Amino acid sequence: GKMTGIVKWFNADKGFGFITPDDGSKDVFVHFSAIQNDGYKSLDEGQKVSFTIESGAKGPAAGNVTSL
C-alpha cells in the first residue's frame, strides 16, 4: 500500500536519492523515473512524499512517488 515519508536527499544530476519512511523502516532508494509529475522529475530534501515499495533489481525501491 501507500506509505509516506520525507526525502532524505536527492541528487538531481544523477537522478536518484533516498526517502526516509514515516514508519521508521529502512531508507528507500528512489529513482527519478518513479516520480509522478509532468514536469521536471526531481525531489527536494525534506519534502514530504507518498510512495509504494516496488522490488527492483537492486532491492526495494520507491514507486508512484507523489509530493504531498
Rank of each mutant, 00 (worst) to 15 (best):
P21Q: 04
V49M: 02
V7L: 03
P21C: 05
G17P: 00
W9P: 00
D44Q: 15
V28C: 04
I6A: 07
F10T: 02
L43I: 07
F18D: 01
S25I: 07
T66F: 05
E54K: 05
L68Q: 10
V49K: 00
V30T: 03
I53T: 06
E54V: 09
K41Q: 11
A57L: 13
K8A: 08
K58P: 09
A57W: 13
Q36R: 05
I6C: 09
F16G: 02
G17Y: 02
P60W: 06
L43P: 02
G39I: 09
G56Y: 12
N64K: 05
T4F: 10
F16A: 02
Q47V: 09
D44T: 15
D22C: 08
H31V: 03
G17C: 01
G56A: 11
A62N: 01
T52W: 08
E45F: 13
F16Q: 03
T4G: 05
A57F: 12
A34I: 04
G39W: 06
I35Y: 05
G56D: 14
A34W: 03
H31A: 04
D13P: 08
L68K: 07
Q36A: 14
S42E: 08
F16P: 00
G17K: 00
L68F: 06
K2P: 15
G39Y: 10
F16R: 02
G56I: 05
W9T: 03
Y40E: 13
G39H: 07
S33G: 08
M3W: 08
V7G: 01
N64T: 08
G1R: 04
K14Y: 10
K2R: 06
I6F: 11
A12F: 10
D22Q: 07
F16Y: 15
V28M: 05
G1F: 07
T4Y: 10
G17H: 00
M3C: 06
I35A: 03
S42P: 07
G15R: 05
G46W: 05
T52Q: 07
N64Q: 12
A34H: 06
G63V: 13
K26P: 13
S42N: 09
F51A: 01
H31C: 04
G1P: 08
V28H: 02
G59V: 04
V7M: 03
G56R: 10
N37E: 13
K58Q: 13
Y40Q: 13
W9M: 06
F29H: 03
Q47C: 04
I53H: 05
A34P: 02
G56V: 07
A62K: 01
D13K: 15
V28S: 02
W9R: 04
Y40F: 11
T52A: 06
K14L: 13
I19Q: 00
N37L: 13
A62C: 04
K41H: 10
V7C: 04
T52P: 01
K2H: 13
G5I: 01
N37M: 15
D38H: 11
V65D: 01
T66D: 08
F51C: 02
S55A: 15
F29R: 03
E45Y: 14
G63W: 09
P60Q: 12
G5S: 00
S50C: 07
P60F: 11
D13Y: 15
G15E: 02
W9C: 05
V65N: 01
F16K: 02
K8C: 07
V30D: 00
K48P: 10
M3E: 06
G15L: 03
S67P: 14
I53R: 07
M3H: 12
V30N: 00
A61N: 11
G39K: 13
G15N: 03
E45I: 14
D44H: 15
G24A: 08
S42V: 15
E54A: 08
H31W: 04
K48M: 11
P21A: 04
K48Q: 09
N37P: 08
I35W: 06
V65T: 02
G59N: 07
G39E: 10
Q36I: 15
D27P: 08
T66M: 10
D23T: 07
K41I: 07
T20Q: 12
Y40D: 12
D27A: 07
T66G: 06
S67W: 11
S42G: 13
F32A: 13
S42M: 13
I35F: 07
G5L: 01
D27G: 04
S55Q: 14
S67G: 11
F32H: 12
K2I: 15
T4W: 07
E54S: 09
G59E: 04
K14I: 11
S67D: 12
A34V: 11
S33Y: 05
I19C: 01
A34K: 09
L43T: 02
G63N: 12
D13E: 14
K58Y: 15
D23G: 09
M3F: 12
V28W: 03
G56M: 11
K58T: 12
F16I: 12
A62Q: 01
G15P: 00
W9G: 02
S67H: 13
N37G: 15
G24R: 08
L68N: 10
S42Q: 12
F29P: 03
K41F: 09
D23E: 09
G1Y: 07
N11P: 02
L43Y: 03
I35T: 03
V7W: 02
E45D: 11
G24L: 07
G24C: 06
N37K: 14
T66A: 10
V65M: 02
L43H: 01
L43N: 01
G24E: 05
F10P: 00
N64L: 10
V49N: 00
A12G: 11
H31P: 03
V65C: 03
N64C: 06
G59P: 07
A61L: 13
I6S: 09
D22E: 08
F18Y: 09
Q47A: 12
D27R: 05
K14G: 06
D13R: 15
K8D: 03
K14R: 12
W9D: 02
N11I: 06
G24P: 03
A61P: 02
S50M: 12
V7Q: 00
G63T: 15
H31Q: 04
A34T: 07
V28G: 00
P60V: 13
T66P: 01
E45A: 14
H31S: 05
E45N: 14
K26H: 12
A57I: 14
P21M: 06
D13G: 12
V65R: 01
V49Y: 02
S50F: 08
I6E: 07
V65Q: 01
A61V: 13
D22N: 11
H31R: 04
F29T: 02
V28D: 00
K48C: 07
E45L: 13
T52S: 09
M3V: 12
G1H: 06
K41E: 06
G24V: 03
G17W: 01
G1C: 07
I6R: 12
Q36H: 10
E54D: 12
F18Q: 03
D22M: 10
K2D: 08
F32L: 07
V49D: 00
F29V: 03
Q47I: 09
L43K: 01
A12P: 13
F18S: 03
D27C: 04
K14A: 12
T52K: 05
P60N: 11
L43W: 04
V30S: 01
G63M: 14
F16T: 03
K58E: 09
M3P: 05
A57E: 12
D13F: 14
S25C: 06
G59H: 07
S55G: 12
D27L: 07
N64D: 11
V49S: 01
I53Q: 05
A57V: 13
S67I: 15
N37S: 14
N37R: 10
K58C: 06
P21I: 05
I6Q: 09
P21V: 05
I19A: 01
A61Q: 15
K26L: 11
T20Y: 08
S55R: 11
K8S: 07
D38I: 08
Q47Y: 05
I19R: 00
K8L: 07
A34E: 09
D44R: 12
F51P: 00
A61C: 06
G46D: 04
A61W: 14
A62L: 02
F10I: 03
S33C: 05
D23C: 06
K8Q: 05
I35N: 03
E54C: 05
G15S: 03
I35E: 02
P60T: 14
T4C: 06
K26I: 12
A12W: 11
T66Q: 14
E54R: 05
D27I: 05
V30L: 09
F51K: 00
G59A: 06
W9L: 04
I53V: 12
F51E: 00
L68D: 10
T4E: 07
Q47W: 08
H31L: 05
G24I: 04
G17M: 01
M3R: 08
G39M: 10
E45V: 14
G1A: 09
S42I: 13
V49A: 02
K48W: 09
K41S: 09
M3S: 09
Q47R: 07
A57Q: 13
V65I: 06
Q36G: 10
N37A: 14
F10K: 01
G5H: 00
K58M: 13
G1L: 07
T52R: 04
D23N: 13
G5F: 01
W9V: 04
F29L: 04
V30E: 00
V7T: 04
K8Y: 04
S33D: 05
S25K: 09
G63K: 10
V49H: 01
N64V: 07
D27E: 10
Y40V: 11
G39N: 11
A62H: 01
N11W: 10
F29E: 02
G1D: 15
F29W: 07
A61S: 11
S50A: 12
G46P: 01
V65G: 01
H31I: 04
G46V: 02
F10W: 13
H31G: 04
S25E: 08
S50W: 10
Y40C: 10
D13A: 15
H31N: 03
G5W: 01
